[in-house]
Design a protein around this nucleic acid. Structure first.
Lengths: 188, 188
DNA sequence: ATTCCTTCTTAAGATAGCTTAAGAAATGAA
DNA sequence: TTCATTTCTTAAGCTATCTTAAGAAGGAAT
């Protein structure tokens, strides 16, 4: 875990070994089993989770009782419910491990303390949040203009192998396509 | 302009008059006429724009030649094409003034220089980006589960008066509804 | 005032994608 | 291996929303 985190953080700033150790020291190792929840709906999201290994999804239950997936997160990505984490408000979303997943998670208090001890760390997380924003915007711009078929083909093309890692009905949910329709699309 | 910016930035951190002046000094006043573009498709987005007064939209032209609005920004909001701004890549989006608009804009270089001079400023922009992310996520979670009619009613309810400020066909575009359909929805 | 341009409405026909309802095929547990 | 659960497919009918095509209404410019 230490190695992976240090390598990851070094992408964002030139950090001394001491600084890297400070960063790592606020992160807590926490594994989750397949299907275990990192966050339940209605609870406050107390952590930012860095995925060391595995795969999680974030989803909610809509009015008609169906699961809607808003996000997948894999190795070296962060996942949290930002609004709940920042405002300490109840989360509308669940976060759940799809595969057995190892995370390094950090509490808000510890992160804030880290920022106070050295504002340099703000930079790293500013850039991480910026990248999240870019990823979401890209996804939106991208998917809004495409029909169901193109959304699927595009996902498969842009993330080769990913479709094999996730049940098809979850892909369908993420792409906002009914599982039945995705099935017919794939035939063609 | 100075007053407005200082008041705005003070929401995010306790800043001395000197620090506020440093912040304001990197911002350039720039007004735009109705329909004038702040950013053209294909160009690199060189600025973050803070809207002092007025209203802008961000949009792209889809495959079938239709404008799709991705964002409106009003007083005291930021607008930029984050991906283009950060990576200095050509923007897929246009940004255009809907009303005569006054902006305070800042170049990437100047912002970076500011960060170097005092890492404290990173904090402010980390929080601003975080808020943008929350706003986008909220919009997504929100709209994905609703039909056209509820999307419209919701917008009207949550931003009273906004619907009067923007031509109806632009609202339709933002809500991903055809203008004709929005018209029929409103009748009911 | 008159004309032009922009915006909004109405209505009919077209279509993408949903829902429902089985059953088939995988996958995992015992 | 066998049973149970999870996942995927197929097909028919249905619905929300789009497209196309006019015309009406409102604003801005001359």
């Amino acid at each position: 875990m230490e190695e992976q985190l240090k390598k990851y953080f070094s992408r964002y700033a030139l950090l001394s070994e001491a600084e890297l150790n400070m960063l790592v020291s606020v992160m807590e190792y926490k594994p989750y089993e397949r299907r275990e929840h990192l966050l339940e709906q209605g609870a406050v999201c107390r952590y930012k989770y860095f995925i060391l290994k595995g795969l999680v999804r974030s989803y909610y239950i809509d009015n008609t009782g169906k699961e809607k997936i808003t996000l997948f997160a894999i190795e070296n990505w962060w996942v949290t419910q930002m609004e709940s984490f920042v405002h300490e408000s109840p989360s509308r979303l669940y976060i759940q491990a799809i595969e057995p997943t190892e995370t390094a998670r950090v509490r808000k208090e510890d992160l804030e303390a880290l920022y106070v001890s050295a504002p340099k760390f703000e930079r790293i997380f500013r850039i991480i949040v910026q990248n999240m924003l870019i990823a979401i915007q890209r996804r939106n711009d991208f998917y809004m203009q495409m029909g169901a078929k193109d959304r699927y083909l595009n996902l498969v093309q842009r993330f080769p192998g990913f479709a094999q890692r996730v049940p098809q009905y979850m892909l369908a949910s993420y792409l906002d396509i009914s599982p039945e329709h995705l099935s017919t699309i794939r035939k063609t």
